Simulated scan of single mutants.
Amino acid sequence: MPPPTPYENAIDLLDADHKAVKQLFIQYDALCEDGAPAEDKQQLAEKICNEIAIHAQIEEEIFYPEVRKATGDDALIDEAQQEHAAAKEAVAAIQGMSAGGEGYDEAVQGLARLIDQHVLEEREQIFLQAQYAALDLRGLAEPLARRKAQLKKKSAPKKAKEAA
């Protein structure tokens, strides 16, 4: 039997991700203000991009389908998935840039604004609807946490190879 998830429910887990990524963006801004080396900013930007990719994937694979089924609100989930697509495009653009290059910081800060807007809408709309729907949010926390751990483990060896 897998260990219990440290989250009360699916929304707590997803919102913890939101808060963690927000903190990473704050750290990135601090690096910019301090004139940190490009490689430090790139490492942090890669971590941000990885966290966003994992978060989006668990929402798209597990959370959004369940919310869609429970609420029947296709338009709301479709919009959230379009926002994810925009974030993925921004992530790909950042990953294709040089951290020391022109526009890199602006691209990361643009991603931060995209994510802030998405999180606000998700909290005010999707999470709210999910809380009032016939949806087992407690039960969803475990598969979300398990899938997140799988994705993190899968992305870790790639990072270790790149560092070598």
Rank of each mutant, 00 (worst) to 15 (best):
K22D: 06
S155W: 04
L114K: 07
I52S: 04
A134I: 08
G139H: 03
K22L: 01
A99P: 01
Y64R: 04
E83P: 11
K19H: 14
A38G: 03
I26Y: 04
E106A: 09
K152V: 15
L151Y: 10
L151A: 10
A149H: 08
A164L: 05
A75I: 11
F127V: 09
E39A: 08
G100P: 01
Q150N: 06
H118R: 02
A36W: 01
D29K: 11
H118W: 09
A16W: 02
P157Q: 09
H118A: 09
L120Y: 04
A38F: 04
L140I: 14
E51H: 09
L135G: 11
G101H: 05
E60R: 04
A156E: 13
G100W: 06
D74V: 12
Q117P: 01
A141L: 12
T5S: 14
K158T: 13
I77V: 15
G96A: 10
D74Y: 01
Q43D: 11
G35I: 05
M97K: 15
P4F: 05
A156T: 15
L114Q: 11
Q95K: 15
P2T: 01
E121P: 10
E162T: 12
V67N: 05
G139T: 09
A56C: 14
H18G: 06
A164G: 12
V108F: 00
L76W: 04
D12V: 04
Q81V: 13
Y104Q: 02
H118V: 03
D116W: 01
L120D: 09
Q150M: 06
N9R: 13
R146M: 03
E142M: 08
M97L: 13
K159C: 03
D29G: 14
A145P: 11
L13W: 06
P4G: 14
I115V: 15
Q129G: 10
A53P: 00
H118K: 12
E142K: 13
A16P: 00
A164R: 03
G139M: 00
D17R: 01
D12F: 02
D74P: 06
E79P: 00
A164T: 08
F63N: 13
G139S: 09
Q23E: 12
G96D: 04
G72H: 07
L111T: 11
L137R: 15
Q23D: 08
E162Y: 00
